[in-house]
Amino acid sequence: MSEDSQIFVIKTTANQERSVAMTLSRIAKKEKLDIRAILAPDELKGYVLVEAPKSGIVELAIQTIPHARALVKGSSSIAEIEHFLKPKPIVTGIKEG
């Protein structure tokens, strides 16, 4: 059974949010880390949000990422960050398989 998602916050150098998000996604894929989603809203300067089950996964992953400065202590729930997801993208309705 998969563990519940939590939201962890990475502090980044200003204006490097997207680059940190992209690098983190590359590392997560390569190392097969259980990082489920990465969010870099423009409203949130200097931070990137990461959806993962445990902070250790994120902490480890950011060690080698330039401009990822630190993992903020604690975690948030999806509900707390939900407002960043609006307006909703138009869904395609296309499913795999």
Partner: peptide
């Protein structure tokens, strides 16, 4: 804004 979805099965953000 940028969202990267890696795991559609388990991501709550992907579901939202």
């Amino acid at each position: 804004g940028l969202v990267i979805i890696l795991d559609t099965e388990r991501s709550e953000i992907a579901k939202k």
